[in-house]
Design a protein around this nucleic acid. Sequence first.
DNA 1: GCCGTTTTCGGCCCGACTGTTTTCAGTCG
Length: 572
Amino acid sequence: MDNSEVAAVFHEIADLLEIQGVSFRPQAYRRAAQNIGQMDDPLLDVMKDGELEELPGIGKAMARTIQELLETGELEYLKTLRAEVPSGLLELIRIPNVGPKTAMLLHRELGISSLEQLKKAIDEHRLAAMKGLGEKTEERIRQGILLVEASIGRTLLGEALPIAEAYMEHLRGSNGMMMSVAGSLRRGKDTVGDIDILVGSDDPAAIMDAFISYPLVDAVIASGSTKSSVRLKGGMQVDIRAVAPGSYGAAQQYFTGSKEHNVALRRIGVEKGLKLNEYGLFERDSGREVASATEEDVYRALGFPLIPPELREGSGEIEAALNGALPELINEDQVLGDFHVHTDWSDGANTIDEMVASAIAKGYEFVAITDHSQSLRIANGLTPERLNDQVRKVREADERADGRIRVLAGSEVDIKVDGSLDFPDDVLMDLDVVIGSVHSRFQMDKREMTARVVNAIESGMIDILGHPTGRLLGQRAPYEIDLPAVLDAAAMNGVCVEINSFPDRLDLKAEDCRTAKGLGVKVSIGTDSHGIEHMDFIRLGVITARRGWLEAKDVLNTYSAPEVLKTLRSRR
DNA sequence: GCCGTTTTCGGCCCGACTGTTTTCAGTCG
């Protein structure tokens, strides 16, 4: 049992205890789970060294729990808890606006112990009539269910990519065969339904064998000579398709999609007397092969430059390619820094020095330290006094870096309900970079929320609007806001909008980035890192920027440290 | 169940919001 599995058990214990109405112990288990999840060393090694109790949040009892799990793979305590709480209640508390108390109430009063039963009860209007609930609560829960169901069967890009890459590593073995992801994953959609892998090989049978014998496979759904599907532990479906190396480019094009893009491309082929399929591009009359080895060949033969996968959504990329107006998309190696990084001064896991070292290791020219402000108590937000102390530490870290990197002093300051900022102006003036973010009162009406955010933008005190729509993929819809109005205000005031690279945010989303670019608003990419391992999320932000048609010049992160500082300082 | 520069018991980030209530319970971040 590895660390993440132990962490998962601890989360389940916390859920089960919460449903039972136990206080404080759930938080203890969650804190422990989080710490275990962030560890580098395997728990097994720590246990062998007899140092489990040295871990933060782990005492005698949890050390014993971990030992039992590692040695037997099971846990008596968990079995006991599971016997006490119907398993269906665990899925009920995943629904927004349904917590442990409501789940237990529904179980006790209406005998509900599954999502299906809850939906039926809502259809029959049985919640509204209950004591303690009512019409509005019933409606809120109904909306919550819709949100959860919309995300079922989809996996975050940031989760699917590493799964796909590890799988391909397993398949590739020693020889460097042609292989890549395809489908929506290759196009970089923020969530994907499954993982598609494409292989170019003369020996597909061997690949198929390796594919279905991957250790993480839970069930083989289909297994053929050139095409197979499996379901992994954890539920993700993975499809593989093998073609001859000579057809690899055409197959890549075909299986990357999107459907709309391919339809448009084939239509253009027809006009030229050509036929396009996964094996190649052919003359319609003679059947002669025109192109197939590389994607670039296929596109060129149709009269286009290579259209990057991220643009292939049938949203104007064909026309742009025909007019020679495709953007020169930003690349990850053009990103020179990260604008959104938390430390252990607020709710991050690592110190300033550790985050800076990580940024240096990534080859950055600059990194901004942006911890939370005082109102966000849950995240240990900084008071003006603590911020003042932190700025001094950041300046010292900058000195110590001795030119290897510029460390920028910043803050992710809360935009309060009235649009004012959580620090007075004179405090903000001391900072190199200020991100303004909404973290409270998400359910304001559209007019109020728009006014709130525009007010913050017009204060002249923020450089970047953080996660501008507040969405959490699969968990929370974006808040009601007039985004074009917000982007207009950003353009007028020279404020950047963020692409928050955290896997469940990716906010702004790609389509909105394109709108921002059209209005002349610059985009800043920030990882929102709460630990060094999050800094690699920058990649997800870059993919999102690419899907939003952004070029290097549209993204503040591609500017050199002196240019960045000049841009930021000119604003206040 | 964990933890300790208020320390071995008694706290535990806690305030805002909503809907259901006449003073509060549940959820969220």
